[in-house]
Design a protein around this nucleic acid. Structure first.
Length: 223
DNA sequence: GTTGAGCGTT
């Protein structure tokens, strides 16, 4: 939904989808529309958002009516600073262009040969990123040289919920140990077993009658 | 409030 008057995929059969990456999490289709519309006729813009959170994922799809416009947009808007972030525009793998890629094995879309060796990394399923797409943190030191300045340790370093020493200590030797000990110590089963055994000689298969007999005489003479 | 690799809704 891009508020373009359509709910689903518009005439993708006659439109070229562009993938816009590196967008800010607050950039919406409305913000990109003017930018892309400037270079050509934009059919529709769609920015996938989290079904749960509803926030932009940082990328969107822009559909152009003509390929030349899309190509131009890719060339002109690719690297355009939007909201303080350089967005990357490239042909998406969906729609007419995707057909070529699937059939003719990456036809390069005859437009992306701008020297940008954007090696298409093996995209993982989208389900992952739906859960925590930033958890991957795939040391992508290489690839884009414009935003590389931030590739430091974006890892999900729990900002506030860090393991506190107190927590760690308590967790280390707390309920777990007590519980365990308690179970093994005061377990009704154990008692039952114990009692049962008490009635029976320690050795269930070795009553050692001989020993008894042998001790018997000794004990008798002992006193 | 944050985050940052990637390819989408009917």
């Amino acid at each position: 939904m891009s508020h373009f008057g359509r709910s689903g995929p518009p005439e993708i059969k006659d439109s070229f989808s562009l993938l816009v990456l590196n967008l800010t999490f607050r950039t919406s289709a409305d913000d990109l529309y003017p930018l892309f519309d400037r270079y050509g006729e934009v059919v529709d813009i769609y920015i996938p958002r989290n079904r749960r959170t509803g926030d932009s994922r940082g990328f969107g799809f822009v559909r152009y009516k003509y390929f030349e416009d899309a190509q131009k947009a890719v060339d002109r808007l690719d690297g355009k600073m939007v909201d303080g972030r350089a967005m990357m525009v490239q042909f998406a793998k969906y729609g007419p262009n995707a057909e070529k890629i699937h059939k003719g094995r990456i036809v390069e879309v005859m437009g992306r040969s701008r020297g940008r060796s954007r090696s298409r990394s093996p995209r993982r399923r989208d389900d992952d990123r739906d859960r925590d797409y930033r958890r991957r943190s795939r040391s992508r030191s290489r690839g884009r040289d414009r935003d590389r300045g931030r590739g430091r340790d974006y890892r999900r370093r729990s900002p506030s919920r860090s393991r506190s020493p107190d927590d760690y200590k308590r967790r280390s030797r707390s309920p777990d140990d007590y519980k365990r000990r308690s179970k093994y110590s005061v377990s009704p089963d154990r008692r039952s077993l114990s009692r049962s055994r008490s009635r029976s000689p320690p050795r269930k298969a070795s009553p050692s009658p001989a020993r008894d007999a042998s001790r018997s005489p000794r004990r008798s003479t002992s006193p």
